[in-house]
Design a protein around this nucleic acid. Structure first.
Ligand SMILES: O=c1ccn([C@H]2C[C@H](O)[C@@H](COP(=O)(O)OP(=O)(O)OP(=O)(O)O)O2)c(=O)[nH]1
Ligand SMILES: [Mg+2]
Length: 763
DNA sequence: TTCCAGTAAGA
DNA sequence: TCTTAC
DNA sequence: GGAA
């Protein structure tokens, strides 16, 4: 889409870098500091009484003793549920199963029932303006994209080789482009034309064609040039004039962008009253930075505070280690973290990035860090040296202890370097999220990350997310691009952005993105459980503007309907205490069915989060197989629905073989919010791999899986497999043979990753 | 330039 | 198969 | 967007 190398890369930040001395920068930046502030946090919970509560209360009263577990698994410091823990897979103790109580069971029968009143109370952003609607007016018959209007072979929009994109991706359907100049002399233009056609546009060769909706002008053309070429005095209001970047950007972001954004403006365009954009520039795009520099844009030093940004974000990143402090009962694990300051990532361990000479120091630290990463394991080879890796204590992996562990290394330097790049090799405890000197930077980058996720640019989003977790671990403020690039996962471009944020307290890219019409609407629709970017954009295209519209006019899948009706419920994070309560209900009920079951609350809860997006519960039983568990699930669901705890089933496994799971909604008491609840039923043999999977977080899992694959393994929720396939002339067994699935720790060990307790898997 | 985890349910 | 979710 |  975007064409590379359009202009010299003279970005704003560069200019600053070049024109300001470091000292100036520092002074400047210091001044900035004083202007900063803001943070937001929230949380809150409530408790009250209800049948379920009572039910549990009785249960609790019944008393539960603890004792040691026979469980071979990790003895983590996990917060302990208030109720007995005999059934815990991960807890390090268990108690006898005497709790066969059947308490006050609500007779309220309530099978998967219809929804309750919806609670959508969002304000809907103003309708997207301009282009989309306009384009839709011109309902040129699709189908015939290729054979644009008349003749003129020249501008061959009729490329026979253009393969149309799938219907669903026909972004430009209904739009007719007229390129200026209308020739294919430029290879670049030809490509743009083909692309446009591929995505549903009609490219006309005939200026007389009255279906033309957009004029795409070459970047070097002035507005008056366009007029001259077209031989007209002015261009009708219903035809948008944009520069050549427009189509590509639309495709990149898979949305019809606002044509009035300055970056798509053809120079010299008369200012139209209605088109005054609230900003001197707008838009975003792959080449945004490059283009930005073309259009002026003075550097406005600091001043304005962090205004509006605040409100939106939080959620995704709001995982905070459960500090001993507050919190209700006694469930605070008070993880062994505390001492962390020194145990963090290599980079920050040293002194502060005071000045440049620190580069050397940093390098040393980084090198040191890599050494830490070595493992008692040779590269690929299936062999794994079972090194004395009862390394559960993350503390062992600070730079300090590094040298000692060196002895295991065996020509593994290469291996160390290799592994050092994986996030799962480090302790990510979510600490330092408060009071982090890079708070503002993180905040802005988080918005960028969400923004890219929103527009489906997953990889970019992933990169931002990785960079953010790295920043969170820094103890000193990263100010200059030069220091930022030294951090893992932060390259030149992100480094520049970080510097820009520090110096301006803003990121232009983001500001523009927020202006994008439809941006807010897209965000709203994406919040619907069961809807992704594809569906959200369809709704937008269909003209829907509110959640009510969706319910009344749009066609929704069953799940999406629930997603809309419980929009707020599902988008509200759940206080840890409530997660615990949901878990108690499930555990208690399950144990009544079979006292040998083992259940644990997983996901962010196990990682110690103070609030969770949903409730994840793993269910297993010594020696159990899928079939056996499946029957148990059915019974469990039946009972939980009967109690009026479960409210709805969103998805459930039907196949008998592989692990079954259930996704749905639960409610702790009448009138309370519906919460997303997930069950994962795991055969005893797969519990280790399942624990890893369900504990997450997702980034950690991906990192670990990537590492595994690079070592010739395959890791999934069932186990760690070693590929048996072998190129040469042998047929590959693609599958791979199971190496380990029962123990979390063994899997870590085999992969050569120091064991990370759940609280340290917050990548 | 290419890859970026691996799997399952629902429509 | 595509989309969404874990 | 980063890394190999
Ligand atoms: O793309 C994903 C999503 C999730 N998971 C795993 C890790 C995660 O921890 C677990 C549960 O998923 P969930 O979506 O509930 O995430 P979470 O980590 O529990 O966070 P949240 O607080 O949002 O529920 O499933 C993955 O492996 N890949
Ligand atoms: Mg969860």
């Amino acid at each position: 889409m975007s064409e590379p190398g359009l202009s010299p890369k003279t970005t704003f930040h560069r200019r600053i870098s070049l024109s300001v001395t470091s000292n100036d920068k520092k002074a400047f930046f210091r001044h900035l500091y004083s202007l900063e502030a803001t943070v937001e946090k929230e949380t809150g919970s409530g408790d009250s009484d209800n049948p379920i509560t009572e039910f549990l209360r009785n249960y609790h009263r019944r008393g539960h003793r603890q004792q040691t577990s026979e469980n071979p698994n990790s003895p983590q410091s996990i917060s302990r549920p208030p109720i007995g823990y005999s059934h815990s897979l991960i807890g390090s103790r268990k108690l006898d199963e005497s709790r066969g109580s059947n308490l006050s069971r609500r007779k309220t029968r309530l099978p998967p029932s219809p929804p309750s009143p919806m609670t959508p109370k969002r304000s809907i952003p103003a309708a997207a303006s301009s282009s989309p609607s306009k384009a839709q007016r011109h309902i040129t018959t699709p189908k015939a994209n290729v054979k644009a209007s008349a003749s003129k072979p020249r501008k061959g929009k009729k490329e026979p080789k253009v393969v149309l994109a799938p219907e669903s991706q026909q972004l430009f359907k209904g739009m007719t482009f007229y390129f200026v100049p209308n020739t294919l002399t430029s290879g670049a233009r030809r490509m743009r034309v083909n692309k446009a056609i591929e995505y549903g546009a009609v490219c006309s060769n005939d200026w007389a064609n009255d279906e033309i909706t957009h004029i795409i002008a070459d970047r070097h053309l002035q507005y008056k040039n366009v007029l001259n070429i077209l031989k007209v005095a002015e261009i009708p209001d219903n035809i948008k004039v944009v520069n050549e970047h427009y189509p590509g950007d639309c495709l990149h972001y898979r949305r019809i962008l606002d044509t009035t954004q300055p970056i798509y403006e053809v120079p010299g365009k008369p200012v139209s009253v209605k088109e005054l954009s609230p900003m001197e520039k707008g838009g975003f795009g792959e080449n945004q930075e490059d283009r930005e520099s073309l259009h002026s844009l003075q550097i406005k030093p600091v001043k304005e505070k962090a205004q509006e940004i605040g409100e939106t974000q939080r959620s995704v990143v709001s995982e905070v280690l459960f500090k001993s402090t507050n919190d209700g009962p006694k469930n605070a694990p008070s993880p062994p973290v505390t001492a962390t300051k020194s145990a963090k990532r290599p980079h920050e361990s040293g002194e502060k990035p005071k000045d440049y000479d620190m580069n050397d120091v940093l390098n040393e630290i980084i090198e040191e860090a890599k050494k830490v990463a070595d493992l008692p394991l040779d590269d690929d080879e299936d062999t794994l040296v079972s090194a004395p890796a009862e390394v559960s204590d993350s503390e062992r992996y600070n730079s300090d202890s590094a040298s000692k562990r060196r002895k295991f290394t065996r020509k593994t330097d290469r291996s160390a370097d290799f592994q050092a790049a994986f996030q799962c090799m480090y302790k990510h405890d979510g600490e330092g999220e408060h009071q982090n000197p890079n708070e503002r930077t993180i905040q802005v980058l988080s918005e960028m990350q969400k923004y890219y996720e929103m527009i489906d640019d997953h990889w970019r989003s992933l990169s931002y997310r990785k960079a953010i977790t790295i920043l969170k671990k820094q103890t000193t403020k990263i100010v200059f691009a030069e220091e930022a690039v030294r951090l893992p996962c932060i390259g030149e471009r992100l480094a520049q952005k970080i510097e820009e944020i520090v110096f301006t307290n803003h990121l232009k890219r983001l500001d523009y993105a927020k202006l994008e019409p439809g941006d807010a609407l897209l965000k709203l629709f994406l919040g619907v459980y069961g809807a992704g970017t594809t569906q959200a954009q369809r709704w937008i295209s269909a003209g829907h503007k509110t959640l009510e519209d969706l319910l009344k006019k749009a066609k929704l899948t069953e799940n999406q309907r629930i997603g809309v009706e419980h929009y707020d419920d599902f988008n509200t994070r759940i206080p840890r205490a409530e997660v615990q309560r949901h878990g108690d209900v499930v555990i208690k009920t399950a144990l009544e069915i079979d006292s040998k079951l083992q259940l644990d609350i997983m996901g962010s809860f196990r990682r110690g989060a103070k609030d969770c997006g949903d409730i994840d519960i793993i269910i297993t039983k010594r020696g159990a197989t899928n079939v056996e568990l499946k029957g148990i699930l059915d019974e469990l669901l039946k009972r939980l629905f009967a109690i009026d705890f479960l409210q709805w089933t969103l998805a459930t496994s039907h196949r008998d073989d592989s692990g079954s799971k259930w996704h749905g909604a639960s409610r702790i008491e009448p009138g309370a919010r519906w919460r997303r609840l997930d069950f994962l039923l795991v055969p005893w043999k797969e519990r280790g791999a399942a624990l890893i999977y369900f504990t997450g977080n997702d980034i950690f899992n991906r990192s670990l899986r990537l590492l595994a694959s690079k070592k010739g393994y395959r890791l999934n929720q069932r186990g760690l497999y070693k590929d048996v396939m072998r190129g040469a002339n042998r047929v590959k067994v693609t599958e791979g043979t199971l190496v380990e699935g029962e123990s979390e720790e063994k899997i870590f060990e085999i992969l050569g990753v120091p064991y990370r307790p759940p609280e340290h898997r917050i990548c």
